[in-house]
């Protein structure tokens, strides 16, 4: 869905741009290629890391580690997995629901979802290239702490 929307937007933008100004359109595509080429080394490394992570860590193992009896330790494990892995949302949400149905606590699942989205250990070197090390440490560190706050609130609101 996201992808269809993005291609539609890009195609519409290009058509509009080409109609308005061919030179600027050419310039846009050159800039697009330059930007892509700039991040390609970091991107390729991320892809290789994702491939290895997905191959080593199976969904079954994740379910096992996030079980409802895991308590605070389970939250820490959930936060660690969420911070390190780069599971796409369309895999993470069904997985989270499966884990919840198997009796996992809201606390663990919420921490996992929140860190998965906000904290990126694997992408931190790439992030530091665009900003600086201090920003990356602050953003990821505060997001990690904040994920526990979100989990406690969610547990109050939807926890049974």
């Amino acid at each position: 869905m996201d992808i269809v929307l993005f291609y539609t937007l890009a195609a519409a933008g290009l058509t509009w741009s080409y109609y308005k100004d061919r030179q600027k359109t050419k310039q846009s595509l050159t800039k697009a290629w330059k930007a892509f080429n700039n991040i390609l080394p970091a991107l390729a490394f991320v892809i290789l890391l994702i491939g290895a992570t997905l191959a080593v860590v199976s969904p079954e193992k994740v379910s096992q580690l996030l079980g409802s009896s895991s308590g605070a330790g389970g939250m820490v494990i959930a936060a660690t997995i969420g911070s390190i892995t780069l599971i796409p949302g369309f895999i993470a949400f069904p997985l989270a629901k499966a884990v919840l149905d198997m009796g996992a606590g809201i606390l663990q699942v919420a921490v996992f979802i929140s860190t998965l989205m906000m904290v990126g250990v694997v992408t931190a070197p790439m992030e530091a290239q665009f900003f600086n090390r201090k920003t990356v440490l602050l953003r990821n560190g505060l997001s990690l702490l904040f994920s526990f706050v979100v989990a406690v609130v969610l547990n109050q609101v939807v926890g049974r």
């Binding site: 195609a11 595509l29 800039k31």
Partner: peptide, 18 residues
């Protein structure tokens, strides 16, 4: 990645120019 990155970068290039 290959499937969703091209439109992102094209949109980026267009934004950057326009």
């Amino acid at each position: 990645m290959l499937s969703f990155l091209p439109p992102i970068f094209i949109i980026l290039g267009l934004l950057d120019t326009w």
